[in-house]
Design a protein around this nucleic acid. Structure first.
Lengths: 345, 345
DNA sequence: ACCAGCACTTAAAGCGCTTTAAGCGAGATC
DNA sequence: GATCTCGCTTAAAGCGCTTTAAGTGCTGGT
C-alpha cells in the first residue's frame, strides 16, 4: 500500500479540499439548512442572512457539489443529449440546446456514439448519470425500444418522426422543405427537375415525398425523375455522371442533402457543365459545407435553434409541468438561396 | 401545490423506481456490502456469491447510480473534456478519448464553449461534475489561469503548447509536420514554395517556424515567402488571388490549415490555374474537408487517436499512479499525400 | 478442548447535500 | 398572563452507494 498517491488517489498534489456547505455555514454561524436555502434561492431566510451567506460563499469560493445535491434532492436537473459528434448539424444543435437548457435551469450531459460505442451504450451512459430526460438527435433504434426507454425517462426524438410510440418528437417538415426548393426552381422557370434520393430511412422518405408532391402540385407529374442515392458525395457524383452520360441533362437537380449536392456539383463542373449557368443545383441541411464560398450552395435550413428550444421545452413540460400526452412539434424549414440556382437558359 | 406532476416531479408517468443495491441484496439474502463488492469486482466474495449476485442484478436490471457511488467513494471516475463542438478535429478526438477512457475504466463528460458560454463556464461545469482530471482541447486561457486550475484537478492541455505552468501537454510537432510537407514537395522537385500563414497564436507560430526551418534545411533560404493569413478559406482565397495577381506564381503553396488550402485551391481553379498541374497545394489537419473527392488535398494528419490515448494516459498517471511532475508529450504528425501535389512541370 | 488462521460476510459510519417537521422568540390577540 | 400567529432557523433523517473494522463459522494444529 505504499505506492505513491494511493493514500489520496485524487490530486495528491496538495489540492486543498473544496469547501462544503458546512464550511460556509460555520463561517456565518448558521446551519447548513439555511445556507442551502439561500444558495438555492428558496424563500424563507431573511435578507440579512441571505447577504451574509452569499458573501461567505463567495469568499470561500464555494461551488455546490452537484453529485451530492442530485443524490439528496433526487433531481439531477440534467438533460441527456445523444449526438453523433461527427455531425456538424448536431454540433449546432448542442450549442442551442445549451443555451435553451440554461435558461430553464438545466444542464446538459452529452454522449455520443462512435464506431465502437453504439447508440445503446450512449444511452446507458446518459441514464447512469441520472438524466431526467433524453434528447436523442436522430435516433435509429426501433420505436419499441425508444418506447421502453420512455418509461424510464421522457424521450424526445429530434429529427426523426416516430409515430405511435408515445414519445415526443421535434422535427422539421422535410417534405415541405423540398417543396420550397421546387417552388423556388419552378418560380425561376425550371420544369425538368431531377431529384437525387437519400436511400431508405424516414427522413429520405419524407423528402422524396415532398419532391413528388411539389412536382404534382405544379403539374409537372411527367417530369418526375428520381435517381438512386444516399447521403454521401459519392452518391451525388454518381448521380451527376449518370445525368451527364444520359445526354438528357435536366435544367435543375435537387438532392437529398448538401453532401450529395456537392457531389453533383463537382461532377458537373468537372465535366465543364456550368452551375448555375447550365444546370441549377440545390441541397438540403444548410451544412457548413454549403456555405463555403467555393460551393455557395442553395439549400434548406432546418432551423436548429428553434428545434433545440422546442426540444428543451418539451422536456421541461414533461418534467416540471406534468404533461403526459406525447407531442409532435413540426417546424417549418426555410429556404436559403445562394449561388447555385438561377433561371434556366 | 396541486399543479399536475408536482408531487413526483420526475417522470410522473408511472415510472417504477429503479432498483437499488439494497433490492439486489434482499433478493439474494445478502448485505449491500457484499453486493457492492461483487459488482465492483473486488476480491473477497466467494464464487458462489458472485454468481448469485450477478444473476440477481441482471434479473432486476440493476444499474449502479454513479451519483451515489461518486459521492460515497469520493471518486467520480470522470474525465472532463472541453471541446469546441464545431471542430471536426475535436469530434474525432472525442471519439478516441472515449475508447481510451473506457479501457482504463473512466467515463467522459463533455463540455463545450459556445458563443454565449465561454471556456470558463465550460470548465466550471466540468468541475461541478467532480471530474477528476480536465482534458482541454486547444484551451485559450492564459497559462496562469490553467496553472491555478491544475491545483483543483490535473489539467492536460491538448494541442496547445504551454511551458512553465506545470501542467501536462499532449500535442503534435507542428513544425515537424510542415517540415514533412516541404520535404515532400522538395522531393518532387519544387523550389518556389510559398507559405500562407495562420496568424498569431502558438500553433501558427510553430507551423511558420517549421516552414522556415525546412526551407533553410534545403538551402532554399532565398525562396522563403510568407503570405499573411488566418484559419479561414477567405484567407486562402486572398492569398491565392494575391499570387495570381502578382504574376510570379510559385510552383507550390503550403497553408496553415486545410480550410485555407481550400481557399487557395478554389482561387486557382477559378482562375484556370491547374492543381496540381500548374501549382501544387498542401494543407494541414487532415480535415474531413480535405478528404472530399472534389478537393482530395495533400495534408498532414495530427494523429488524433494517439493524442487521445496519451491524454488519457497522462490523466491516469496523475490520478492513479501519483505522478506529480508535468510531462510534455510531443507526437510526430504524419504526411497524407493525396491528389493536390505533383512534380512541377 | 483450545486457539490461530483463514475465508467470507456484514454493521455501521459516512460522502455533501436536501428536506421536513419541529423549535424558538417576539409581537399580536384575547 | 395565556394563547396564537408569524417569520425565521435548525435538528435530523435520509438519498444510494462505499469502506472499514468487526464479526462469523470454519478448518486444522497442538
Amino acid at each position: 500500500m505504499d505506492e505513491p498517491g494511493s493514500a489520496d488517489p485524487v490530486g495528491s498534489s496538495g489540492a486543498k479540499p473544496r469547501p462544503r456547505l458546512e464550511d460556509v455555514a460555520a463561517r456565518v454561524g448558521l446551519s447548513t439548512a439555511s445556507v442551502s436555502l439561500v444558495l438555492r434561492g428558496v424563500p424563507g431566510p431573511s435578507e440579512r442572512t441571505r447577504q451574509r451567506v452569499l458573501k461567505a460563499a463567495a469568499d470561500l469560493g464555494y461551488r455546490p457539489d452537484r453529485t451530492a445535491s442530485a443524490l439528496a434532492s433526487k433531481r439531477s436537473r440534467l438533460l441527456g443529449v445523444m449526438i453523433d459528434v461527427h455531425s456538424a448539424f448536431h454540433a449546432e444543435m448542442v450549442e442551442h440546446l445549451h443555451t435553451a437548457a440554461e435558461e430553464v435551469g438545466y444542464d446538459l450531459v452529452l454522449s455520443t456514439q462512435t464506431r465502437t460505442r453504439d447508440e445503446n451504450a450512449a444511452i446507458e451512459t446518459l441514464l447512469s448519470f441520472r438524466c431526467e430526460a433524453l434528447i436523442l438527435l436522430g435516433p435509429v433504434a426501433p420505436a419499441s425500444v425508444l418506447a421502453d426507454l420512455d418509461r424510464k425517462a421522457p424521450v424526445i426524438s429530434v429529427g426523426r418522426r416516430i409515430t405511435g410510440a408515445g414519445l415526443d418528437v421535434v422535427r422539421s417538415a422535410d417534405d415541405d422543405g423540398v417543396g420550397q426548393i421546387i417552388d423556388h426552381l419552378v418560380g425561376l422557370g425550371h420544369r425538368a427537375i431531377v431529384y437525387v434520393d437519400g436511400g431508405k430511412g424516414v427522413i429520405a422518405t419524407d423528402r422524396r415525398r415532398g419532391y413528388r408532391a411539389a412536382m404534382r402540385r405544379h403539374g409537372l407529374d411527367a417530369q418526375i425523375r428520381i435517381l438512386h442515392g444516399d447521403h454521401t458525395e459519392e452518391a451525388g457524383d454518381r448521380g451527376g455522371r449518370h445525368l451527364l452520360g444520359g445526354g438528357d441533362l435536366p435544367t435543375a437537380v435537387v438532392t437529398f442533402n448538401d453532401r450529395s449536392a456537392i457531389g453533383v456539383l463537382t461532377a458537373f463542373r468537372g465535366a465543364g457543365v456550368g452551375v448555375p449557368g447550365d444546370v441549377s443545383v440545390a441541397g438540403y441541411d444548410d451544412d457548413t459545407l454549403s456555405r463555403l464560398t467555393c460551393f455557395d450552395l442553395t439549400t434548406v435550413s432546418q432551423n436548429a435553434e428553434e428545434q433545440a428550444r422546442q426540444a428543451v421545452l418539451a422536456a421541461v413540460e414533461r418534467l416540471d409541468q406534468g404533461r403526459a400526452v406525447p407531442r409532435e412539434i413540426v417546424l417549418a424549414p426555410s429556404l436559403v438561396v445562394r449561388g447555385t440556382t438561377a433561371p434556366p437558359r
